[in-house]
């Protein structure tokens, strides 16, 4: 059974995962038994009662009340068990423990932003304490997204103009993947993030140092790390291939034609403006879809990103 579980379901890393998996396996097992029975009956009947001649006569069996009641009532009982089981599991998912640690989540096309109580902001990487309930309060800046962690068995749509929430308690430390599961356009499948569950002390550590710049890095190295951390590479490639936005490769000091036909040089001022006010000057052939990084990146971080872009050619 464990082997089957491992094959069918991702590892169960949250407190509610076990309950979901239990019901999943229950339905799977009952279904498998019934499916085997039905398939066997089909095959057996078509062998046993194969037509012998055109003159075959068959008995007139129009109905059988006992049998019909049996195959209505037994499935009804089974599905009612499933209903009750599923509903209690669902209520556990919806009832947030009062001591839950709260994190704000903002979905933007196409990245996830996580805001923590001390003002720390991370992009596309969620850090949570393990063995403690965490409540995510989520909203979207544009279209509908959906926040999904397969390992934790949680999912909730993220809507514009209102808050939704999801809570979980990670049972062990480690990384898991976060998907967007509500179709949101071009880079929907790149809207992937990771959740890292830390032990309580590691989490405190991370929180304290996350937005502190690592002084040992050179500006270029820092820029490279920031590009990865902030989800820039979901839309901008470093190898010249065209994605949602222009590639970084060879862009430094290149002439770029804009949507209105004018031409700009991709210099430090243009890059800075494009990070803080992305829709001010859109490259020809691209859509105005990039979210603003105003307030997410410090001047020094922007400088580092520019330094890094300079090196990509």
């Amino acid at each position: 059974m464990d082997k089957v579980l491992e094959f069918l379901l991702p590892p169960a890393k949250s407190t509610i995962a076990g309950q979901v998996d239990g019901l999943f396996i229950f339905i799977l097992a009952v279904s498998a038994v019934l499916l085997v029975g039905i398939s066997f009956a089909i095959i057996y009947f078509s062998w046993k009662y194969k037509r012998r001649s055109e003159q075959d006569t068959t008995p007139v069996i129009t109905h059988n009340t006992k049998l019909e009641v049996a195959w209505s009532v037994i499935p009804l009982i089974l599905v009612m068990i499933v209903f009750g089981w599923g509903f209690t599991g669902y209520m556990n998912m919806r009832t947030v423990p009062t001591d839950a640690y709260e994190i704000r989540v903002v979905g933007k096309s196409w990245l996830w932003e996580f805001h923590y109580e001390n003002g720390t902001v991370s992009v596309n990487e969620l850090h949570v304490p393990a063995n403690r309930p965490v409540n995510l309060v989520m909203s979207s800046n544009d279209v509908i997204h959906s926040f999904y962690i397969p390992d934790y068995r949680v999912k909730r749509d993220v809507l514009p103009n209102r808050y939704s929430n999801v809570w979980f308690e990670a049972m062990e430390t480690g990384e898991s993947v976060i998907f967007c599961t509500e179709y949101c356009g071009r880079a929907h499948s790149n809207m992937i993030a990771t959740v890292t569950a830390h032990s309580e002390s590691d989490f405190e550590n991370w929180l304290a140092t996350a937005n502190v710049i690592d002084e040992s890095l050179s500006p270029v190295e820092l820029g490279k790390e920031l590009i990865a951390k902030n989800g820039c590479n979901a839309c901008h490639s470093v190898d010249g291939s065209r994605m949602v936005g222009p590639s970084y490769k060879g862009s430094w000091m290149a002439e770029r034609e804009l949507e209105d036909g004018s031409v700009v040089t991709v210099d430090a001022n243009y890059l800075r403006e494009s990070i803080l006010e992305p829709n001010a000057k859109i490259g020809a052939g691209y859509d105005p879809v990039m979210p603003s990084y105003q307030g997410l990146l410090s001047d020094r971080e922007i400088d580092a990103i520019i330094e890094y872009i300079k090196t990509i050619d």
Binding site: Q19, V20, I42, V82, G86, G89, N92, R153, K155, E182
Partner: peptide, 25 residues
């Protein structure tokens, strides 16, 4: 009969609230 039965059983999984949260979309 065979395929539709599988379709039906997996429908039961999707109808179960807690399992659907995991499987939806």
């Amino acid at each position: 009969l065979f395929l539709f039965t599988i379709g039906g059983f997996t429908g039961i999984m999707l109808g179960a609230l807690s399992v659907d949260i995991h499987l939806h979309d």
